[in-house]
């Protein structure tokens, strides 16, 4: 991974020297173990800030649309910057989605794709450690060694410590890249996909409802899931519209369920299962389940996965006569 990180820094420095980009979006170390932070590099001298490791879970596509927005209050002509970005497979799919939805311009973007071996779920490691704070984490090829603020130590198998989305990931390489690094090392996960959804589908309606209530009643309406999601770029979210007002501001179940189901449906045919919402949630809610259920339905009904290519229109943006229409019912 160190080699990939070095290569990344070298390539980004070259991009600045050749004036290919004005700004490069990558990950940098954050102060806590197993955390990174998006960073915005503006010259070749700054490339050593960039890191590539098992904690680069954030989907950097979410940070891109803001860079292409005209600065508020600016008068006169404005040219959007040339932006470079480093992506995992999932991030690259989000970028494809954002380009197709006209939120970012392909011609102002330079994408470096890195074959991804999966990112660590920090919450899982903290949970395995118990009640102490996470003081330090050492990672090697096979395990995460977590050290608590009280000195306790715990070893977690790396495969177990990976985010659920990474454990089931089928698209580890960028589907859109101007330059690809670490191409050989990553292969798709050998697991049954949608295992969590199948388990959910097997439940009775009452059990399914109970599961959703258990999960969603934890929500504190902080909107971290929405803000970390590249697909949630709406200027005004339905959750906050006032004319009409779709839902209230409380943490009562109807408001919370309306928000999360609404958000999940707005992801239909668009969610790439990057896991950013799960990683962002301070309450550890299994937000992935709803999105994966819809992803599974989309795949079964329309044979499509979201944002695998620029050419293919999103399932809800296209119509084919042979599309499954069994879900339509008489009024």
């Amino acid at each position: 991974m160190k080699q990939v990180e070095d290569a990344l820094r070298k390539e980004v420095a070259k991009l600045f020297e050749e004036k290919e980009v004005d700004i490069f979006v990558g990950h940098e170390a954050a102060s806590l173990p197993l955390k990174t932070s998006a960073c915005f590099v503006r010259s070749s001298e700054e490339v050593d800030r960039l890191v590539w490791n098992r904690s680069c879970a954030a989907n950097l596509a979410a940070y891109l649309p803001q860079l292409f927005k005209r600065p508020p209050g600016l008068k006169g002509a404005w040219t959007p910057p040339k932006v470079g970005v480093v992506v995992k497979g999932c991030d690259s799919r989000s970028i494809v989605g954002l380009i197709k939805e006209k939120q970012i311009p392909r011609d102002r973007l330079f994408v470096i794709g890195i074959g991804c071996e999966g990112m660590i779920d920090r919450h899982k490691v903290a949970r395995a450690l118990g009640t102490a704070g996470l003081a330090e984490a050492k990672i090697d090829e096979t395990a995460v060694q977590a050290i608590g603020t009280d000195g306790t130590e715990k070893q977690i198998d790396i495969a177990e410590a990976l985010a659920a989305s990474c454990q089931e990931c089928q698209h580890r390489h960028a589907v859109l890249a101007d330059l690809a690094l670490n191409e050989a090392s990553a292969s798709p996960a050998e697991v049954s996909r949608y295992a969590n959804v199948a388990e959910f589908e097997d439940k009775s309606p009452d059990e399914r409802f109970e599961h959703l209530v258990t999960e969603l009643s934890r929500c504190i309406r902080c909107y971290a899931c929405r803000e970390a999601c590249p697909n949630c770029y709406c200027e005004e979210c339905f959750a906050e519209e006032t004319t009409p007002k779709w839902l209230g501001v409380t943490t009562d179940l109807p408001d919370v369920v309306f928000f999360h189901l609404g958000r999940a449906f707005h992801q239909a045919g668009r969610c790439v299962d990057c896991g950013a919402c799960v990683a962002a949630c301070p309450q550890g809610i299994d937000l992935r389940l709803l999105n994966q259920k819809i992803n599974k339905d989309v795949e079964e009904l329309f044979g499509a996965e979201a944002s695998l290519s620029l050419e293919e229109a999103g399932v809800l943006c296209s119509f084919r006569m042979e599309d499954d229409q069994s879900f339509m019912t008489e009024p």
Binding site: A62, A224, A228, P282
Partner: peptide, 12 residues
């Protein structure tokens, strides 16, 4: 640019 604009910090 880094701040996502969610409410986690204030709510926690």
């Amino acid at each position: 640019l880094k701040c996502l604009g969610c409410g986690v910090c204030a709510y926690a």
